[in-house]
Design a protein around this nucleic acid. Sequence first.
DNA 1: ATGACTTCCTTAGGAAGA
Length: 269
Amino acid sequence: MPKLRIATFNINGIRARLPALLQWLEREAPDVACLQELKTTDDAFPIEAIRAAGYDAIWQGEKSWNGVAILARGAQPVESRRGLPGDPNDRQSRYIEAAVEGVLIGCFYLPNGNPQPGPKFDYKLAWFERLLRHAQGLLDSGHPVVLAGDYNVVPTDEDIYNPRSWRKDALLQPESRECYARLLAQGWTDALRTRYPDERIYTFWDYFRQHWQTDSGLRIDHLLLSPSLAPGLRDAGVDKWVRGEPHASDHAPTWIELETKPGGRKRKS
DNA sequence: ATGACTTCCTTAGGAAGA
């Protein structure tokens, strides 16, 4: 059975982090890499270096902030959508979607929402409502789907080193957590938590107070699987070594390995 | 705690991240 390794990585500036991205792609060689926080315009996206590394890509940039991309090794992602439906006035580059090897992949950067309460938190919750609506539509389509990205939600207190100093943060608010729980209730499977039901798994360590050195992390980068894909989950993990490199992003790449049905791939007979 | 650390944009210091 063919296997597909799909990763999500908030790179925190693709130009500042290009050497780190290329090193990671060479060493781990994921089949699909969903990137967030490109922090660059479309024309400055380093597509040539990515092609030289054996990947093709689609991306939606934005000056200074946000920005998302989907990379596929040895394949061109077939774009199915850019931008999350539901608000024509939303100009922030936070959602892109493509088919790779018969799997539909939604890659997104959910708004942070701080400070809360306030307009930024309202935007976060409104964006989450739009995601919930779109995710339900994807489920209804019956396609195999992975929703991968920086959700900016710590789902439970088991997903953070110590919730005490984060209680007022947008990432831990009951409203944020309820949105995430409603997403799971639609029928999606949280791949990392399924693979590690009882372990502390972190995907982000902030730059402050030596949080990396003391393993004081948060789990906020998630990969959710549609029902037809969930039984094919073979492995999952976090490439923590990337976070330990010099000039690292504050997030580490988070990945899953899926066994996909041969029917989902085009093959020559 | 208007904190810390790091990026971007611009070239000294503010905005944003989480």
